[in-house]
Computed example of a mutant assay.
Amino acid sequence: MESLLSSSSLLSAAGGLCWRKQNLKLHSLSEIRVLRCVSSKVVAKPKFRNSLVRPDGQEPSSLLLYSRHKPRFLVNATTGQPEAFEPKSSQKSLRDSLDAFYRFSRPHTVIGTVLSILSVSFLAVEKISDISPLLFTGILEAVVAALMMNIYIVGLNQLSDVEIDKVNKPYLPLASGEYSVKTGIAIVASFSIMSFWLGWIVGSWPLFWALFVSFILGTAYSIDLPFLRWKRFALVAAMCILSVRAIIVQIAFYLHIQTHVFGRPVMFTRPLIFATAFMSFFSVVIALFKDIPDIEGDKIFGIRSFSVTLGQKKVFWTCVSLLQMAYAVAILVGATSPFIWSKVISVVGHVILATTLWFRAQTVDLSSKNEITSCYMFIWKLFYAEYLLLPFLK
């Protein structure tokens, strides 16, 4: 039996893949056409089994071409059938699509939105009987509508910052080219429409106005139009984030549960006032800290963030100091609680968070973008932890 390849070789020339056709022989196949040139390093791996004899008695004639950085392709060259490139499996394509959407949605903001709504909703619980399917239905309505609006806001920001993200965040789908601009526009438009539609059919005015104000501020923050793109101005950008994260989320979603779900009159409780004040501090810290690792791209594209104007080190320690002040106030408020369980959880919990932040800040190398980014994500974890503590403050 004639062998599959009597003498074949792959040559790398000009970054491409070339076949020496004159040395190539295929059983009952006169020629092979190269359908695709692979610019990256490619390895040709014959798939031989049982000395080139398949169980069905036919000669195998397949080569598996794969790249270290590209999807795999299978070259089929069976007798009487033209060779063709088969794309990667649909399962892998689905996984890649989900991964791209996961990064597009900015998962740390999604987690923050879900935890904040859950925490604030439970602030409206006054008695055990309030914990019912009615409560969880109201929370689900708020969470789904808010997540859709969250994806609109972060998606619009990426659409407006494609060139900046190529420097600061090249892993994002629009910056990396995984998503086209048309795809990004379709996603943000769809999710904004669905968010408003859900808020309207639910019939809760606090929920609808929370979505509407978030939409207005999120659009003004990112979109590059005259008098807009407020992210260019450090103070205005911080106020936008504070308004959404600290005020709208706390008050509007609390009122959604208090008035729409439970049918109670509007009432601003001590825990709600504390949560709004504390998260105002935290939102300012997030607004300041998020620009520290992005200083390189912001300088290039003229974004005058506090990190650009004041320097990374000064902004970093300002953020740490603001959080320490907020934790000190939280400890004092927790110590005045009339409930012993609330007092213990609030005081001990905030002492642990403040101590952890202080020791974490001491280890950060401010000359390393990776370490600053890691610390920024740690700040978000503290943000999540605070929402876990808030319902225990009474």
Rank of each mutant, 00 (worst) to 15 (best):
V344D: 07
F85G: 06
K88P: 08
E371I: 02
Y376A: 10
N76W: 08
K166M: 09
F196E: 15
I216C: 14
V114D: 10
V347G: 04
E31F: 02
Q362E: 14
V167A: 05
V244E: 03
L228G: 12
A175P: 00
I187F: 01
F85E: 15
H69D: 15
I345Y: 01
R68F: 00
V42W: 00
A189Q: 04
P170H: 11
F122C: 14
T355F: 07
C240S: 13
F392I: 07
V266C: 11
Y179V: 08
S367G: 06
K25N: 12
F316A: 15
S28D: 11
S176G: 07
I345M: 14
V348N: 08
I257M: 12
Q250V: 11
S39H: 05
I111C: 09
V202S: 03
R20I: 13
P338W: 12
G334S: 15
K47N: 08
Q22P: 01
S40E: 14
S28K: 12
A14S: 15
A326I: 02
I292D: 05
R49S: 11
Y102I: 13
E83N: 09
R36C: 09
V315I: 14
A186N: 12
E126F: 00
S61A: 15
W341G: 04
S105D: 09
G263D: 10
L26V: 10
N150E: 12
N150S: 14
A186S: 12
F316P: 06
V308T: 08
I379Q: 09
Q362L: 15
L135E: 05
T363P: 00
R95E: 08
P82M: 13
K394P: 00
G155D: 04
K299D: 11
Q22S: 13
H27R: 15
I153C: 05
K314A: 14
L174A: 08
G297C: 08
W317N: 08
N157Y: 03
P87L: 14
Q158T: 01
T355L: 10
V125H: 09
K47G: 03
V320N: 01
I131Q: 11
S321Q: 11
S192F: 01
E296N: 11
A354D: 02
V261K: 04
K92M: 13
G334C: 06
A146N: 05
H350R: 07
D165W: 01
F233L: 06
A328S: 04
S204R: 01
L393N: 03
H350I: 02
L235D: 04
T259I: 10
W209M: 13
R106C: 00
R360S: 11
L390Q: 08
M148S: 08
L389E: 11
L123Q: 06
F253L: 14
P133E: 15
F212W: 04
Y102C: 06
M239W: 05
I248M: 03
